[in-house]
Simulated scan of single mutants.
Amino acid sequence: MAVFCYGLEPPRLTWSIIGPDGTVRRRPTVVAAVDEPMMVHDMALTSRFLVVALAPASFDLPAHGQRVRLVRAPR
C-alpha cells in the first residue's frame, strides 16, 4: 500500500510503502518536484515508478493559474 503525507510547509509531499504485514517497506521519501502545496488527486504505482496526479491545495487563483501536475518519482 502506498501512503502519502502532504502539507503547507516543506517537505510538501512524502510517500511510503506499507507491506501486507503492516511493516514499513519504504520509509517516508520526499517528492522533490513538489515545490508548492498540492493535494494528491490520483496515483499509479508501477514496478519502477510512483506517478502522482496533483491538484492545487488552494481555491485562491495563484498568479500562474490553477493547474494539475503529474509527478514521476523513482520507486
Results as ranks from 00 to 15, higher is better:
48 R>Q: 14
73 A>I: 03
63 A>D: 12
43 M>I: 09
40 V>L: 06
23 T>Y: 05
59 F>A: 12
30 V>L: 04
51 V>I: 14
17 I>G: 03
58 S>P: 01
63 A>C: 02
38 M>R: 13
5 C>M: 09
3 V>C: 14
29 T>N: 07
62 P>E: 07
34 V>G: 02
19 G>Y: 00
44 A>F: 05
26 R>Q: 14
40 V>D: 08
7 G>L: 04
35 D>T: 09
35 D>H: 03
61 L>Q: 14
58 S>R: 09
35 D>K: 07
9 E>G: 01
1 M>V: 12
3 V>I: 15
70 L>H: 04
3 V>K: 05
62 P>V: 02
1 M>I: 11
12 R>Q: 15
47 S>C: 10
62 P>M: 05
53 A>V: 13
43 M>F: 15
75 R>F: 03
17 I>K: 12
64 H>D: 15
26 R>Y: 04
13 L>F: 02
55 A>S: 12
49 F>A: 10
4 F>Y: 15
41 H>T: 09
61 L>T: 14
43 M>G: 00
38 M>Q: 10
70 L>W: 07
52 V>Q: 05
8 L>M: 05
24 V>P: 02
24 V>T: 10
10 P>H: 13
57 A>E: 06
32 A>G: 04
68 V>A: 05
34 V>A: 01
31 V>K: 00
62 P>L: 06
56 P>A: 10
7 G>P: 04
57 A>Q: 08
1 M>R: 12
5 C>A: 14
10 P>F: 15
20 P>G: 12
1 M>E: 15
8 L>Q: 10
70 L>A: 12
10 P>N: 13
26 R>I: 07
32 A>Y: 00
18 I>M: 08
59 F>P: 03
56 P>K: 09
35 D>G: 11
14 T>H: 08
46 T>E: 07
9 E>F: 11
71 V>S: 06
6 Y>T: 04
37 P>C: 03
40 V>T: 06
66 Q>C: 02
11 P>S: 08
24 V>W: 00
43 M>A: 10
31 V>R: 01
